[in-house]
Amino acid sequence: MAETQTAATAGAIGSSKGSDDIIQIQGMHKWYGDFHVLKDINLSVKAKERIVICGPSGSGKSTLIRCINRLEEHQKGDIYVNGIELTNDLKNIDLIRREVGMVFQHFNLFPHLTVLENCTLGPIWVRQTPKKEAEAIAMQYLERVKIPEQALKFPGQLSGGQQQRVAIARSLCMSPKIMLFDEPTSALDPEMIKEVLDTMIELADTGMTMLCVTHEMGFAKTVADRVIFMDGGEIIEQNEPHSFFDNPQHERTQLFLSQILAH
């Protein structure tokens, strides 16, 4: 691991930031067929940093964070996660995926497994944790997201907000270093959004590195260290939340913010 770390840092040509960056994306491009979705993405994320990504629909937000755990493949540029370069090497991909948890818009819980089994599956099969231990850890996280009493139910028997909290607990059970959130609240009813956001805020307080695609600007203001605005596959602007919201530089950012705050 130490070797890859140095290799990664050595490879980070032109990067002014040091090796404390847990994610480094340099000159990354991605195409879907002929469609250029991501254009020259450069992004460094420090450990424990909390980043909110926003932007209009179709701007490539999901694609960007899905490139970080290789759910999507990039065609040009470099991505280093936790010091490991993301290439076609399946071993590296597996190593990275262990350290990166992901929470999806539609929860993607495994409907044929109980909540507890959803949470223990990864630790048992990927980290080879003994079952008893995995269950103890899972219960701990289920308690943290405040639904230990649902452990033996199936996901189909839970509300949307509860399902999303299970999904968060499931990711946390793998003890990841980084958590990716892709619009975790946008499939939820308003009264459930709060319970999920509260869970995420608590998670942020524990010092987790987080990248969230979300339109919850209140969340961005309270939690984010940095807000990134994307449009047309490019990072248009990034800033700490106060300056970002109060003093957006780019006119596309201004337009987006005015639209989003209008309703």
Partner: peptide, 30 residues
């Protein structure tokens, strides 16, 4: 089986045969 099931299995770091055996096939066979 929705694409999300594959993605959730992948993002956990399950290997191909693991995700087939534990996630995809139990649902598909059912």
């Amino acid at each position: 089986i929705p694409k999300g099931q594959y993605e959730a299995a992948d993002s956990m770091g399950l290997k191909y045969w693991q995700s087939m055996r534990l996630i995809i096939l139990p649902q598909a066979l059912k």
